[in-house]
Design a protein around this nucleic acid. Structure first.
Length: 664
DNA sequence: GGAAGCGTACTTTTT
DNA sequence: GTACGCTTCC
């Protein structure tokens, strides 16, 4: 491997500097992934054992891609190389060490939906009134407390008791939430020097991708691991920091410079992705942000196309326009469907577009959004699996206790809950007591129903825990509970729905089977499988090369496409009205978001801004995004959105628009 | 006491 | 479109 021939001079320095702290500022499209993969390959070539290398990323997609590229480059399987997201690495650490803080290693991981159920349970027990409360808000407060981003204040103190209850229940259910995946490992490493030592001895070379998106917790986690060797390389771009709402703190770049004063810094500014037009637009836009490290991207790629903007009448016409453009460009310029990206600010904007893609037979895939695993029928299956893995997991138990209907209703549940609350038991323990205790106050009928539920769990638990028996046991379980009959019963009007849902379950079971049969999988246990799917939002593998990529701007980060459509470029969507409401200073993050969207495009960028859009049933007038005014107008070109607009209406509109854009 | 049926309020971004 | 809560039915 000849690094010098493969990389430009800056890239070469970044890839060949492997000892000591290194800060790489990598602009959009500057070949960052290439540098990282070459850097790892170079380390391996220098004789560093793969087990000593740890690469941390932010998303599963990035992790998967990085691992794949290193394998391709080296032609080796590298089973001991660790490339993972922060959260997945947290799980790995917890699996090995969580017993040191009194949890069991079969812990469940709660996603947002589970967290809300847990919150409601916690509130119920301490008789906290949840009327007029927004669970998401409360969870936001809890998250800030847990990750030490904030402290209790006059407003939030009100929830302190609820937080204590929430935490107590997590532990009682042997469960952790997403924040725990970062904070608990930190706690363990902080308080157990011998465990910390084990990790710092093992991982001698650490790399962190998308560093601008790391939270304070993730930074501490990284620092704990890295302080043994101080061979720590972080790669980031402050202009692409778009996760501050989740605690990302791009000031970590400053902390890094402070904590590792001996660091070397490399700035990658040559862009290999986009045309001059697109880069000039992006540079001009982002220069409006005040809080940034200066950076100017440049490229040698000449432009053929201006940035296009169309103003469709409504979201239907917008979808129509995008579909037609894609078809046209696909045919005329023979650009594969897989080279198109359609970017949206919010998941809800996908609906109209998806509908038209289906109608026009345009193959597409939507990444992000409600994941496969969040679908009701799949979530039911997962909760059964979680109960089998961890019977104390009340959140999962509550979900499936009466699914399918087995006669356990509100009254029985209430009795169970008071029994559990009284003794600080999980519901599972309470059920056992209800069934087997001699002085049980439960009705004979309730006891019979509960007993058969317990027997079901007891029968299937050893089965599903035996090696490579997850898929087959789950199949058996769905038959035993007659889930098909349940689906029919729940949807009596339309047999299409049960058929569709049953099909999803079959797909799910098949994917488990694939997981179990994969020879590269050293330890395909139920726990590992559950942990894995808790951390991935996506449907199973996305090897569909020939499909248009429809996704949110957030999930588009790190990707690139020949032709990029940016839909819904309207004043309340980007910048999002809600974000600005929260804090007007959020405009800078929204601008970065727009910047990320623009810089995904290699050849062509086509934006659409609807004149009206249906929001929650109601038709709403829309104005173009103010960010459009910030782009150099000579780079823009208006494209007629073919639509049945009345001419007069259109003229009025364009006058309004010119006024707005021209400031006259 | 449990199941089924109807009305209402909410969708910013994700591990 | 959907998920939850409240009411009525069996």
């Amino acid at each position: 491997m000849n690094l010098k021939a493969e990389l430009n001079q800056k890239q070469y320095i970044a890839a060949s500097t492997i000892d000591g702290p290194l800060l790489i500022i990598a602009g959009a499209g500057s070949g960052k992934t290439r540098v990282i993969t070459f850097r790892i390959a170079h380390m391996l070539e220098m004789g560093i054992p793969q087990s000593q290398i740890l690469a941390l990323t932010f998303t599963n997609k990035a992790a998967r891609e990085m691992a794949e590229r290193v394998r391709e480059l080296t032609g080796k399987k590298l089973p001991q190389l660790t490339v993972s997201t922060f959260h997945a690495f947290g799980v790995k650490v917890l699996r090995d060490t969580i017993s040191s803080i009194g949890y069991k290693d079969n812990f469940s991981i709660y996603d947002t939906v589970d967290q809300i159920s847990l919150l409601k349970e916690s509130a119920r027990e301490i008789r906290f009134d949840m009327e007029d409360e927004n669970p998401q808000n409360i969870l936001g407060i809890f998250s800030r407390i847990k990750t030490k981003r904030g402290d209790w204040d006059e407003v939030t103190s009100y929830y302190q008791g609820l937080y204590a209850s929430y935490q107590r229940h997590l532990k009682l259910y042997n469960a952790v939430d997403f924040d725990d995946l970062i904070m608990l490992p930190i706690h363990i490493l902080d308080t157990h020097p011998e465990i910390l030592n084990r990790y710092t001895e093992r991982y001698r070379y650490i790399m962190v991708d998308e560093f601008q998106d790391t939270s304070m917790g993730q930074y501490r986690f990284m620092k704990l691991l890295a302080d043994g060797s101080r061979n720590i390389c972080v790669v980031g771009d402050d202009d692409q920091s778009i996760y501050s709402w989740r605690g990302a703190n791009y000031e970590n770049i400053i902390s890094f410079e402070r904590d590792y004063p001996e660091l070397k810094e490399v700035k990658l500014e040559q862009n290999y992705r986009s045309t001059e037009t697109i880069l000039e637009a992006a540079n001009t836009l982002i220069a409006n942000n005040t809080n940034r490290k200066g950076k100017q991207l440049w490229t040698g790629t000449k432009s053929m196309n201006k940035i296009e903007i169309a103003y469709p009448a409504n979201e239907r016409d917008e979808a129509q326009f995008i579909a037609e453009q894609i078809k046209g460009i696909h045919m005329r310029d023979s650009i594969k469907f897989g080279e198109f990206g359609v970017l949206i600010r919010t998941n809800t904007l996908s609906r109209a577009i998806e509908e038209l893609f289906l109608m026009e037979n345009i193959p597409y895939k939507m990444s992000g959004g409600t994941s496969f695993y969040q679908r009701k029928e799949i979530k039911d299956m997962i909760c059964y699996m979680r109960i089998l893995a961890n019977p104390e997991d009340d959140v999962s138990l509550l979900r499936i206790l009466n699914v399918p209907r087995r006669g356990i209703g509100a009254r029985t549940l209430e009795q169970l809950r008071s029994l559990a609350d009284m003794h600080d038991w999980s519901l599972h323990t309470a059920i056992q007591a209800a069934v087997y205790a001699t002085d049980s106050p439960f009705s004979e009928r309730a006891k019979t129903d509960l007993r058969s539920f317990l027997q079901l769990i007891e029968a299937f638990r050893p089965k599903i825990l035996s090696p490579r028996k997850i898929a087959s046991t789950l199949k058996e379980l769905t038959d035993a509970i007659d889930y098909w009959e349940y689906l029919l019963q729940e949807h009596p009007k339309d047999e299409k729905i049960p058929t569709w849902k049953w099909r999803n379950i079959e797909i799910f079971i098949q994917s488990i089977e694939d997981y179990e049969k994969n020879p590269d999988n050293m330890n395909p246990s139920l726990f590992n499988y559950l942990n894995r799917i808790s951390l991935t939002t996506k449907d199973e593998p996305d090897d569909d090369e020939g499909k248009v990529n429809l996704m949110t701007i957030h999930s588009a980060k790190g990707l690139e496409h020949e032709v990029v459509f940016l839909a819904g470029v309207e004043s309340h969507i980007i910048p999002h009205a809600r974000a600005i409401e929260d804090d007007p200073a959020n405009i800078e993050e929204e601008r970065r978001l727009f910047y990320v969207a623009i810089t995904r495009a290699k050849q062509r960028l086509i934006m659409t801004s609807c004149r009206s859009r249906k929001v929650l049933r109601e038709e709403m007038e829309c104005l173009p995004s103010p960010f459009l005014e910030e782009l150099p107008q000579h780079l823009l070109q208006e494209t007629e959105a073919a639509a049945d607009v009345e001419a007069a209406e259109a003229t009025d509109y364009f006058q309004l628009l010119r006024k707005k854009l021209g400031g006259v």
